[in-house]
Computed example of a mutant assay.
Amino acid sequence: MALALGGVAAGLAGPHRASANVPQKPLIMIDPGHGGHDPGAIAPDGVFEKHITLATGLDLRRSLLKTGRYQVAMTRTRDVFVTLEGRVAAAVKAKASLFLALHCDHLPDPDMRGASVFTLSDNASDALAASIATDENSSDGTPGQITGVSPQVANILASLETRATKIGSQSLAQDIQDSFDGIVPLLPDPHRSANFAVLRDPSTPAALLEMGCLTNKLDEQRLRDPKQRAVLTDHLTQAIDRYFAEYAGRRLAG
């Protein structure tokens, strides 16, 4: 069965710029995982993670733009491969206010289902988080290093992320968890942390969302259903609204 993707624009999506007379809107960088020769996780019936992440990313872009409160850019808007370092570099270049990577889990237990959200840490919060980070970091064959960025950025990436970025990332993850609770199925202990390469931009609060488990039939059906994906993106939009109304707003005021 084919996945309902909707219209897929060609090329990389640039930010929607505000006019000179309007205050600059926060720029959200959406990162649909995998793509091109990298299918990501593959469901037992052959569905590719890369198609689900792209479809959801495009849905989320529409949902965010509809609010009129944000600029939106994407690391990819079609089925192409983008390296992990290229995804980080895109967020740095765009001076993104927020970075959200979209992925799907592939877990050894087919009974496990639900979404989980990850933030960056040097040490994984648990064995499952460490395993997922290892899988995601190896997608382009460069599991340990981020290169291809300026020496200044590279030096920062070699150290811990800044305290403000870390707090912002944790706030975003909590907002996503709270928005999903009771609406979108969640794994036990859904907020986890690990050393994800794609989250290493020290200037941008970032989270990686595993939207569900492709190894679980119910999750796979939910992620392939455009109506169910709309529920997920609506609640992601609500979480981002809450983040900017609460944490980011307090940070700007301070």
Rank of each mutant, 00 (worst) to 15 (best):
A89W: 06
G141M: 00
A115S: 13
G144L: 13
R76G: 00
L84A: 06
P108H: 13
A73K: 04
S138H: 13
A91C: 07
S125R: 07
D105T: 03
L102G: 02
A90E: 09
A73N: 10
R78T: 13
A91T: 08
F99C: 04
V80P: 00
T134P: 00
T75G: 15
D79C: 07
R76Q: 07
E136F: 09
L102N: 06
K93E: 09
G144N: 12
D109E: 12
K66V: 05
A96G: 11
F118W: 05
A91N: 02
P143S: 09
V92M: 06
T134Q: 15
D105P: 10
A133P: 07
D122F: 13
A115Y: 08
A133Q: 04
P110Q: 05
K66Q: 14
G68N: 04
A129H: 11
A127D: 13
G86Q: 11
D111S: 15
T75L: 07
D105H: 13
S139T: 13
D109T: 00
K66S: 14
L64H: 08
R87L: 04
Q71E: 11
D111T: 13
M112Y: 11
D79K: 00
D126E: 02
A90W: 06
E85C: 10
V72Y: 10
F118V: 01
G68P: 09
F81L: 10
K66P: 01
V88Q: 01
P110T: 03
V88K: 03
R87T: 01
L102V: 09
F99V: 08
F81K: 09
Q71H: 01
R62Q: 14
S121F: 02
A94C: 05
A89G: 07
M112D: 14
D126G: 04
D109P: 03
V82I: 15
Q145E: 02
H106S: 15
K95G: 06
D126L: 01
T67M: 07
A90I: 05
V80L: 12
E136S: 06
A133G: 02
A90L: 08
T83Q: 03
L65H: 10
A133I: 03
R76S: 08
T119G: 08
D79S: 03
A124T: 04
F99D: 04
R76Y: 07
Q145Y: 15
S121C: 03
A89Y: 04
T142S: 14
Q145I: 12
V92G: 00
L128I: 13
A90R: 05
S116E: 13
A124C: 04
L128F: 01
P110D: 08
A129Y: 00
E85D: 14
T67D: 10
F81H: 15
M74S: 11
S63P: 05
D105I: 03
L102F: 10
D79M: 06
S97P: 02
L107D: 09
R78D: 14
A133N: 12
S139N: 04
A129E: 08
A124V: 05
E85G: 05
Y70C: 06
V82M: 14
S121V: 01
S97W: 05
D122S: 03
P143D: 06
E85P: 06
A91V: 02
L84Y: 01
T75P: 12
L128Q: 10
A91P: 03
G68R: 12
P110G: 09
Q71V: 04
S138D: 15
T142Q: 14
A115M: 05
V92W: 03
S63R: 12
A89D: 13
V80C: 07
